[in-house]
C-alpha cells in the first residue's frame, strides 16, 4: 500500500467521523475505522480526528498509544497472533511460540522484510480447552505444535 497523502487521510477522516456523528464516545470506533481503511493510524489522521471531536491532538495520540490494537506504522499483509497465556502454556504453548519465531525469523511485533507477515503476541483467544492457539488473520487455529504453526505461516504469501 502506498503512503496516503495528507489530504486523502483528512478526507477519509471527515467521512468516517460523519458516520459516527451523534454517537456517545466515538473515538475508538473512529480509530478502528481509520485503521481498517489504511491498515494503520496515519500520523496525518490525528489532527483531523482531534478537530472533528473537538479534543486535543495529544488526547488522540494518548489513546492510540494506549491500546495494543492500534498501530501507527503499516503492518504486514498477514498478521499472525500467537497466544502466550497460561492455558496455552499448559498445553505446550512455549514450543509453539519458539517455533513460529524461528520459522518467521521474527521477534514479537516485528514484520518480515518483504512485508509479508507481522508476528504479534495475544493474551487469550478464548479457545483455552484446545490450545495452543493462534489466529492467522481472522482464521483461528487450535491444537498447534511447532511444526503445524511453521507449516501454516509458510503458506502465507
Amino acid at each position: 500500500m502506498t503512503t496516503p497523502t495528507g489530504s486523502e487521510v483528512a478526507e477519509a477522516v471527515a467521512q468516517i467521523a460523519a458516520m459516527h456523528a451523534g454517537r456517545e464516545g466515538p473515538l475508538l470506533p473512529i480509530l478502528q475505522d481509520v485503521q481498517a481503511r489504511f491498515g494503520h493510524i496515519p500520523e496525518a489522521s490525528m489532527q483531523p480526528i482531534a478537530e472533528a471531536l473537538n479534543i486535543g491532538r495529544a488526547e488522540v495520540h494518548g489513546v492510540v498509544s494506549f491500546y495494543h490494537d492500534f498501530h501507527t506504522e503499516p503492518r504486514g499483509r498477514h498478521v499472525v497472533r500467537v497466544c502466550r497465556s497460561e492455558a496455552c502454556q499448559a498445553r505446550g504453548g512455549r514450543a509453539v511460540e519458539e517455533g513460529v519465531r524461528e520459522a518467521l525469523g521474527l521477534d514479537w511485533n516485528e514484520t518480515t522484510a518483504d512485508g509479508r507477515v507481522t508476528l504479534e503476541p495475544v493474551y487469550c483467544l478464548g479457545l483455552c480447552a484446545s490450545g495452543p492457539n493462534a489466529t492467522i488473520d481472522d482464521r483461528p487455529a487450535g491444537r498447534l505444535d511447532a511444526d503445524r504453526i511453521a507449516g501454516l505461516v509458510a503458506e502465507l504469501r
Partner: peptide, 23 residues
C-alpha cells in the same frame, strides 16, 4: 462496541473510560 486489545479494560472503570473514547 469493540475493544482495542487492552486486558485492563475488563476492569469496570477502565472499561467505562474506554467506552467514552479515553485511555
Amino acid at each position: 462496541r469493540v475493544g482495542a486489545g487492552a486486558y485492563v479494560c475488563g476492569e469496570e472503570t477502565s472499561l467505562l473510560n474506554s467506552l467514552e473514547g479515553k485511555r
